[in-house]
């Protein structure tokens, strides 16, 4: 195990530094990007207030707006998209309030945009706009995460950024640490010593496991520390932020086990790394489809990554120990297969 450290320490330490730097950097840059992740304000939305009244199958929207001086009357426009509003009623409204009935759909209250226009001296003038539901940003609509919140930011970072980087890197390390011994012709000498193939493989994996645990812990601590440094850390967020990192552990373990299996089976670095990358990208791809396509959400439960439920950890501070154990057990099962394959195969010479 020590020899692994001595031969790989530069790469491993560099990656640890890169991870820390990226996490801290993203957190540091986040406040200045914050507005970009917020929903665009509707024009004059402060002038119009909205209240919803649930009537069972329908929802009654009570709209009220501040009076405009010299207004002859008002017109209410409504449409499901904010870019294209049409007059709700042809005739003018004399009061500073109106009602609008919405039919509920599958998701409950539908999104509806309103604009109140005043007629002043024969000219139309926008009083303000409003929406039946709280607005979401483009990011949130695409990825379902509110990036303006600490939790959303952490989730985004893990999900789409270096969660992937980390999985690819550790998959690569796992696949190449074994296949390098084949490619560099070290295997014959090592296995001519009284070392069983099982011990050889398990020691390598133990080393990778220890490194992964260290890396996830460092990443979690840097995340918490840098959030604290920019003054965005509330006390309740420490555990969820740390856990969001640590819960990746069994998922990464599984990826590394797949990398190890690929390496002992093909005994060739490039192919083994290719196979583990394929495994990671398939997981990411399936999860991306599951998160974006309606009706396909269940797909993510077929992937290990699907059990790394960031939203549940970050937003609700809940996580399933059962899932954690399940994925870790799957990782060990794959590792056991790798040992069996390794024990039965000819060593490429």
């Amino acid at each position: 195990m020590l020899i692994e450290l001595r031969t790989n320490w530069k790469v491993l330490l560099t990656f640890l530094a890169v991870v820390s730097f990226l996490v801290a950097g993203m957190v540091a840059a986040w406040p200045s990007m914050g507005t970009a992740f917020q929903a665009d304000a509707l024009k004059g939305e402060e002038n119009v207030s909205v209240e919803l009244e649930d009537l069972g199958d329908t929802v009654k929207v009570h709209l009220q707006w501040s009076p405009v001086e010299g207004a002859d009357n008002y017109t209410l426009l409504a449409y499901p998209q904010p870019q294209m509003l049409v007059p709700e009623r042809a005739e003018g409204i004399d009061t500073e309030s109106a009602e609008h009935l919405l039919e509920k759909d599958e998701g409950g209250t539908p999104q509806m945009y309103f604009a109140v226009v005043a007629l002043v001296d024969g000219e139309r003038q926008l009083v303000g706009m409003a929406s039946s539901l709280e607005r979401t940003s483009v990011y949130e609509e695409t990825f379902g995460v509110n990036m303006s919140r600490v939790e959303g930011m952490a989730s985004f970072m893990w999900d789409l950024f270096w969660g992937l980087l980390m999985m690819l890197f550790l998959g690569y390390v796992a696949a190449s640490t074994v296949s390098r011994d084949f490619e560099e012709r070290k295997m014959d000498i090592i296995l001519s010593k009284p070392v069983s193939r099982r011990r050889y493989l398990l020691e390598k994996f133990a080393f990778l496991t220890a490194y992964t645990a260290l890396m996830l812990l460092v990443a979690g601590l840097v995340l918490v520390g840098s959030m604290a440094a920019i003054g965005e850390l509330s006390e309740g967020m420490v555990a969820p932020l740390l856990m969001s990192s640590l819960l990746a552990f069994p998922v990464v373990l599984l990826i590394m086990a797949v990398g190890t299996l690929a390496a002992v089976y093909v005994q060739d670095g490039r192919t083994a790394v290719g196979l583990v990358f394929l495994f990671v990208l398939l997981q990411v791809g399936i999860n991306l489809v599951a998160s974006m396509a309606e009706g396909l959400e269940h797909l993510s439960s077929y992937t290990a990554m699907g059990y790394w439920d960031l939203d549940a950890i970050l937003f609700d501070n809940v996580y399933s120990v059962g899932d954690f154990v399940l994925i870790a057990a799957a990782a060990l099962a794959v590792l056991a297969v790798a040992v069996l394959v390794f024990e039965r195969r000819d060593m490429a010479g």
């Binding site: 020899i3 031969t7 560099e184 012709r185 070290k186 000498i189 296995l191 001519s192 009284p194 070392v195």
Partner: peptide, 14 residues
């Protein structure tokens, strides 16, 4: 393997 030494024809080290 405890009792033998082996020199492969084609080998590498670290």
């Amino acid at each position: 393997r405890r009792r033998i030494g082996y020199l492969p024809g084609d080998f590498g080290m670290y």
